[in-house]
Design a protein around this nucleic acid. Structure first.
Length: 930
RNA sequence: GCAGGCGUGGCGGAAUUGGUAUACGCGCUAGCCUUAGGAGCUAGUGGAGCAAUCCAUGAGAGUUCGAGUCUCUCCGCCUGCACCA
């Protein structure tokens, strides 16, 4: 018996496949096409760990299976090599980014080469190749010509450590996604792409993508953040004199965006963000300017992180000397500047409705501003909360839950708590009470007119319409007591206070003519009458420039006379110049600004003196369209040939990490839609099916990282167990899209399985045609066809773990036989081949086959063989299994019932019992109800 | 806080339309082969019980002849977003 020598086998076939160009792809109209794509890697300095190839293995299996199923498969690979990490790595190691990138690509390619992938390396692309980024620049110019790329001076996210601007998508909770430094907000000159013009299409077209995972679509919807509401104008008055009646219209307005125009009557003050332009315009009208300016400056110095800290107390300053007019009722309301209102969202100013908004409520409480309820649910329940003592625990809970309360003295001189709950606080309050009540105290919630008694489940004159609330209250059961009247209760308890609980649909109150309307109705009516219906998006325009060296130069020339002019198309690519010092300057200028001979140029329009743009593009630029270039990687005339693109596009299946859900995948969809609009491509969505890869964690459950020293290098695993074992193991770990911890013992399991496969070649093999096959009795052909069916379907569904499990069952079974039909082994090898390509190709050739196994057609299962002739008929009594009988699958209902009742085991259970009915499920079971 | 997802042995995880819960793998136990070893072979392996049998899919309820699967409530975990007006 030969030993399974994975090294010999794998080296042999990798060489052979390379020689025969097994994976070379070209357009072939005779075959249906299949384009399967991996998210191309960023070649970092540390090389691959075992988690990286997971997605590549999965697509490789898919690609090989599709090839055998008669598809013309495109499965390319390339490098996303521009960007900060490569540049930082180069600076740290004192080498040129280009050299660092080349070195890293070589490492990656070598590592990937050992795993037996089907990539057509003749289509390899690299985003840092001038022939590639020529077309990135070309697209930028097309956007510029259509007004979709523009210069802006808005405040942007600046990372002081990476010394560059970042887009919103590059932040993680206010920190730089790369280095974890708190980002500063600075107004800076930037190139920006108008992705917001595409917001609606990006949102609506998600509906066209049924084969995307719902979670990713949901993330994109949230990121785009469409909300419908109204823009309402509030005019501003100033006071000429101290006398309030002498006021004049100063011709200024505050525009606010609100999703709840039905609460307009409840607006009791206004808040504008510290960066709002209007404040500067109102400078002369504001009497306490010095104080206001101090606040604005303080806000400026706070990092985004500090400002968005939810636990911090709200602060603000009243703008003295001016008031706003609420257009619905002409009431004068004060204006505040406060940093809980953000510049970046809506209009940067809000109308504050403290009765219906948690944040406004907190602010109103702090500054003692009026709170006016204008919407209430249909039913009001007045209730009383009673506590035995004012215990410290309850107070702490109330403080923690941000529920307002006051402590007073009751009639007998002891403390009591007064709690005023708002509409949106009720759930929180009930939760709080519940958690608090785990202690020794107790609380009753008793209606002012009705008495609720939970313990005995008696509810006199109970008027709750909301059963959910009732259920919740019920859960406080052990702590509830019964009283005959409120007075008895009050007497029994020394103190109490009242709270109001609102239940049901919203009804507008205290709102003039609108009073009594349903909240929904009032929303659109009031919006139309007092403002303008508007749609607002959370998505911001894409900040597209970086003040760094290692990126595509933005192909724009600044001319004093002509303004911004695009670099003429024939001068593309605009190559990144060689530079001695590529360290970031930190001044907001790119290192390119120091190369005078490059910066100084002529205006292509007027020929006059002009300067080149020195910012570069972000990392996400090149990756926004790379999948198109694989189709036609060497085209010098166009980004992609439209005929070829029509054949291959769209990408049928795209597999990659979920971390790209709101960046790469939104950018690429935007870029693609733009290319579609200018007629460069044929379809308006780039990726038909999308699957995310679940992360492989280290054995200790943490992320694999140098920092923890828990990284496993695939090279070691390939060396010790073989690429095929690694492939099978990674696919067997669990559901593909779920995170999963690495286990080297698990690889051993996969290796054992492949060794068992290898041993099958020592079986006696014989040819067997049709019915006269002795082995048929063993059940092997039946099992084979069931396995083919399952594996075929599981590959399509990306359920590789269960496919492998089915193949293990087959091998375990076949391993016990002395002999097997040659055809069965061959067919089995074909379905295993995508998973363990080297081993299967080897065994296939040892069986005497000359042509590669991957050129063989995928085996078809015989539907007749997949059916079971006999089944185990389950006999249940009252749903519990009492017996199983082996019967023909086609057994009739009557016969099944008959033999079920005749069974000895069943008879025993039926003694002295009456049979109520007997249920028969064809091919499955008989259930006797007694 | 909001949205999406998940919860099954010691572990990773299986389980068509509701129909034999725990497939497959790891680990573990016993035995075998071997001078020895395990990345070998055989058998066993949810819990309780001598057994018949009973109990088990986060908890509790509901629908059903029958629930891991459907409905409701709660608890816990993961992911994303988050002072989004």
């Amino acid at each position: 018996m030969e030993k399974y020598d994975h090294k010999k086998i794998e080296e042999k076939w990798i060489k052979s496949w390379k020689k025969t160009k097994l994976y070379r792809t070209s357009e072939d109209k005779a075959k249906p096409k299949y384009y399967i794509l991996d998210m191309f890697p960023y070649p970092s300095g540390s090389g691959l760990h075992v988690g990286h190839p997971k997605g590549y293995i999965a697509t490789d299996i898919f690609a090989r299976a599709k090839m055998m199923q008669g598809y013309n498969v495109l499965h390319p690979m390339g490098w996303d090599a521009f960007g900060l990490p490569a540049e930082n790595y180069a600076i740290a190691n004192k080498i040129h980014p280009r050299a660092a990138t080349e070195k890293n690509i070589a490492t990656f390619k070598n590592q990937l080469g050992k795993l037996g992938f089907t990539y057509d390396w003749e289509r390899e692309i690299n985003t840092t190749d001038p022939e590639y980024y020529k077309w990135t620049q070309w697209t930028f110019i097309k956007m510029f010509e259509r007004g979709l790329a523009y210069e802006s001076n808005e405040p942007v996210n600046w990372c002081p450590s990476c010394k560059t601007v970042l887009s919103n998508e590059d932040l993680e909770g206010g920190l730089c996604e790369r280095c974890g430094t708190a980002v500063e907000r600075k107004p800076m000159r930037q190139w920006v792409l108008k992705i917001t013009d595409y917001a609606d299409r990006l949102l609506n077209d998600l509906e066209k993508l049924p084969d995307w995972e719902e979670s990713i679509k949901e993330m994109q919807r949230n990121w785009i953040g469409r909300s419908e509401g109204a823009i309402v104008k509030f005019s501003i008055f100033n006071f000429q004199f101290s006398n309030k009646s002498k006021k004049s219209n100063c011709q200024k307005f505050i525009e606010v965006f609100t999703t709840r125009p039905d609460t307009l009557f409840g607006a009791t003050f206004m808040v504008i963000s510290p960066e709002h332009k209007l404040i500067q315009d109102l400078k002369s009208e504001i009497k306490n300017w010095a104080e206001v300016e101090g606040y604005i400056n303080a806000a400026k110095n706070k990092s985004d992180l500090e400002r968005t800290d939810l636990n911090k107390e709200k602060t603000g300053i009243k703008l003295e000397g001016i008031m706003a007019i609420n257009p619905v009722n002409n009431e004068e309301i004060p204006i505040f500047v406060a940093d809980y209102v953000l510049t970046g969202y809506g209009t940067g100013a809000i109308m504050a409705v403290p009765a219906h908004d948690q944040r406004d409520f907190e602010f109103a409480i702090k500054y003692n501003l009026p709170i006016k309820q204008v919407v209430r649910p249909e039913d009001i329940l007045k209730s009383i909360i009673v506590t035995e003592t004012v215990e410290k625990g309850l107070k702490d809970e109330l403080v923690k839950s941000k529920i307002e309360f006051t402590i007073g003295l009751s009639r007998n001189g002891r403390e009591h708590i007064r709690i005023v709950l708002k509409e949106y606080q009720i759930n929180k309050f009930i939760k709080m009470v519940q958690s608090y009540l785990k202690g020794d105290g107790w609380v009753d919630i008793i209606g002012a007119r009705n008495i609720l008694v939970f313990k005995d489940k008696v509810f006199e004159n109970f008027q709750f319409n909301d059963l959910k609330l009732f259920e919740r209250l019920k859960r406080t059961e052990p702590l509830v007591r019964k009283y005959n009247s409120i007075w008895e209760m009050l007497w029994h308890n020394s103190f109490y206070e009242e709270f109001v609980c609102y239940i049901g649909e919203g009804v507008v109150i205290n709102s003039g003519d609108f009073t009594g309307m349903k909240s929904n109705q009032a929303r659109s009516k009031m919006a139309k009458e007092f403002g303008k219906l508007t749609v607002h998006y959370k998505l911001r325009d894409w900040v597209f420039s970086r003040q760094r060296y290692w990126g595509e130069p933005i192909p724009i020339i600044h001319c004093e006379k002509c303004g911004n002019v695009a670099v003429p198309e024939k001068e593309l690519p605009l190559k990144l110049p060689e530079v001695k010092n590529y360290q970031p300057t930190g001044t907001g200028e790119s290192p390119l600004a120091n190369i005078k001979e490059w910066v100084n140029t002529k205006c292509p329009k007027c020929g006059g003196k002009a300067l080149r743009e020195t910012n570069t593009m972000p990392q996400w630029a090149g990756s926004s369209w790379y999948y198109l270039r694989y189709i036609d990687p060497k085209n010098k005339k166009a980004l992609v040939d439209k005929v070829k693109e029509k054949y291959w596009s769209p990408v049928d299946f795209y597999v990659g990490g979920a971390e790209h859900a709101t960046r790469h995948l939104i950018y690429a969809r935007f870029w693609h839609k733009f290319l579609y609009d200018i007629g460069a491509v044929n379809y308006d969505e780039p990726f038909t099916r999308l699957q995310q890869v679940g992360l492989i964690m280290a054995e200790d459950g943490r992320k694999m990282s140098k920092r923890w020293g828990n990284v496993i290098n695939p090279d070691e695993i390939v060396e010790k167990f073989g690429a095929d074992s690694l492939r099978v193991y990674e696919m067997f770990m669990g559901p593909f899209n779920q995170p999963c911890a690495w286990s080297t013992n698990g690889v051993i399991g996969a290796r054992r399985f492949l060794e068992n496969v290898y041993k099958l070649k020592d079986k006696k093999l014989y040819d067997c045609q049709g019915g006269d096959c002795k082995i048929k009795e063993s059940g092997l052909p039946k099992l084979l066809h069931k396995t083919i069916k399952k594996v075929t379907q599981d590959i399509e569904d990306f359920h590789y773990n269960t496919a492998i499990s089915a193949m293990m069952i087959f091998v375990n079974f076949a391993g016990k036989l002395d002999a097997m039909p040659r055809g069965a082994l061959e067919n089995f090898l074909k379905i295993l081949a995508p998973f363990a390509p080297h081993l299967c190709e080897e065994l296939w050739s040892e069986l005497g086959n000359k042509e590669s196994i991957f050129k063989q057609p995928w085996p078809k299962y015989n539907p007749e063989l997949v059916k079971d002739e006999t089944i185990n008929l389950v006999i249940q009594i009252n749903g519990k299994v009492r017996d199983t009988l082996k019967v023909l699958a086609e057994i009739s209902e009557e016969e099944a019932k008959k033999i079920a009742l005749e069974s000895e085991k069943i008879k025993k259970w039926l003694e002295y019992k009456e049979i109520i009915k007997v249920i028969f499920v064809k091919g499955k079971l008989v259930n006797i109800v007694i």
